[in-house]
Computed example of a mutant assay.
Amino acid sequence: MADSYMDFTSPNTQFTYTLSDNPFFQKDAQNVINTLSINQLNTLGNVSLLDIFLSKDNVVEPHIHQNATELVYCITGGAVVSLINPYTKELLNFTIAPGQVANVPQGWWHYEVANQDNTHLLAIFDAPVPEVIFGSDILRLTPANVLAHSYCLDEAKVKDTLAPITDTVIIGPPASCSKQHPNGMPMQQMMNHGGMNMAQMAPGSYQQAIQNQTYHYPYRPISGESESYNAPLDHPFHPIPFLYRRWD
């Protein structure tokens, strides 16, 4: 039973909670994520949720939940839920409006982009505390020489492109980033057509944006290794510290 651990006669039994009392991340007043897990409401069992508020073209950055399936429910506004099917190698884009849902299977790469202001989403998980691996962590913590060698890329260009990503993004783009692509295509439309092409953005705009806005949240390595490493991140023998975070 999901709640077999719970002594419902205990005076510590919790049945209600105010989601705004547990903010996980805030980019600004319109882009906020609150979270509810068993750590806040001890009668939950194997369920948890994120309370997500987004303004138009803001994105919950690409990520995976390695321990849970995610059901995204639209309350107000609208969003595009995009995911990669690992079996068919397809990028799938699902537009949801109020009253509609999109389901993301456990471990699938996905992201959500608001296509309207005042978008409010609930992300519901089949885990008491969902875990997450963010794309920005993978990009910034994998040594540039490993990426360059793996994919036959120019190492200097890889370093230059990824150097501004100094922390986890969570809700992108950063507040100081340009919201409009120079060719006039909205940010959300670019994401839905295969991703953002940073090389075509105004020179330095993306890099400067991320340098001006960084966030710090608790984390621990998946492997259980120490969070401190003596070798530089671009050292060829650096133990790549892929990190996961808990929405708790």
Rank of each mutant, 00 (worst) to 15 (best):
M1S: 10
Y5Q: 11
D7S: 03
T9D: 12
S10P: 04
N12G: 03
F15R: 07
N22Q: 05
N22S: 09
F24N: 00
F24G: 03
Q26P: 00
D28C: 05
A29S: 13
A29I: 10
N31A: 11
I33T: 14
N39R: 11
N39L: 10
N39Q: 11
S48M: 01
D51L: 09
F53N: 11
F53D: 02
L54N: 12
S55G: 15
K56N: 09
H63K: 13
A68E: 13
T69R: 07
L71H: 06
L71T: 11
V72M: 03
Y73G: 04
T76W: 06
V81F: 05
L83R: 07
T88C: 01
T88R: 05
E90F: 00
L91T: 06
L92Q: 08
L92A: 02
L92W: 03
F94A: 03
G99P: 02
G99Q: 10
Q100V: 00
V101N: 09
N103Y: 08
N103V: 13
P105R: 10
W108T: 08
W109D: 07
W109T: 09
V113E: 02
A114E: 13
N115A: 03
D117C: 07
H120D: 00
L122M: 06
A123E: 09
I124K: 00
I124M: 01
V129G: 01
P130R: 04
I133M: 15
S136C: 05
D137S: 05
D137K: 01
I138V: 12
I138Q: 01
I138G: 00
R140I: 07
R140M: 14
L141K: 10
P143D: 08
V146E: 02
L147N: 04
H149L: 10
C152D: 15
L153K: 04
V158L: 11
T161L: 13
L162M: 00
L162I: 05
A163Y: 12
P164T: 02
I165K: 00
T168E: 09
I170D: 02
P173G: 09
P174F: 02
S178Y: 01
P182Y: 02
M187L: 14
Q188T: 15
Q189V: 15
N192V: 05
N192H: 03
G194T: 11
G195R: 07
A202P: 04
A202Y: 06
P203N: 03
I210D: 10
Q211F: 07
N212A: 15
Y215K: 08
Y215F: 14
H216D: 11
Y217D: 06
P218M: 05
Y219S: 09
G224H: 09
S226N: 11
P232T: 11
H235S: 14
H235P: 03
P236F: 14
H238A: 14
P239Q: 12
I240R: 10
I240V: 15
R245E: 12
R246D: 04
W247Y: 14
